[in-house]
């Protein structure tokens, strides 16, 4: 944000309108990074396609470059071989960013509990919203997206993640 003057941030009358405008903009223009590895990624494709039409929620600009995205959607099983790559992608996304664990595998490892699978991506990166299901229906995904929007709605430029305090 680059707003460092704490006196400005203390001025509620000034900050609240800015928050409202920024959050409104961010909420309805999430650019998802589709980190799709498995079955859930096919359902993500279904969400993006005409029937469910993710653009109704303003999130249809799906990017495959972490530097152009702010919503990391992890759809599918993350193996130990993939884990460092997921971490790297997460680190490359600029703040502010949000993470959705899409599907049982991303949430908790799902039905795979063995020598090669990570037991939930929250062991690697922070997660904002968990969408359960194997795979979740497109409706469940959209519900998760709305939850992300709600999280964004409640944020303020006074939050530590923006002003670095």
């Amino acid at each position: 944000m680059g707003i460092e003057t704490s006196s400005i941030l203390r001025n509620t009358a000034l900050v609240e309108p800015v928050d409202a405008i920024l959050n409104w903009c961010r909420e309805y223009s999430c650019w998802p990074y589709a980190f799709g590895t498995a079955c859930c990624a096919i359902e993500f494709m279904a969400v993006a396609a005409s029937h469910y039409d993710i653009s109704r929620f303003g999130a249809e600009v799906i990017r495959f470059s972490p530097r152009q995205a702010d919503l990391l959607v992890v759809s599918g099983t993350i193996s130990e071989k993939m884990a460092p790559i997921l971490k790297k992608i997460y680190d490359q996304i600029c703040e502010p960013k949000w993470v959705m664990a899409h599907g049982a595998c991303a949430c908790s490892g799902g039905i795979y509990d063995n020598y090669c699978t990570v037991q939930g991506i929250d062991t690697i990166i922070p997660v904002d919203v968990y969408v359960p299901g194997c795979p979740p229906t497109p409706e469940a995904f959209l519900d998760g997206l709305i939850k992300i929007q709600k999280i964004i709605e409640g944020e303020s430029i006074r939050d530590p993640k923006y002003c670095g305090e």
Partner: peptide
């Protein structure tokens, strides 16, 4: 390959 190895056979 192997980035989605989920251990089907062992499981």
């Amino acid at each position: 390959i192997g980035y989605l190895h989920r251990g089907f056979e062992k499981t």
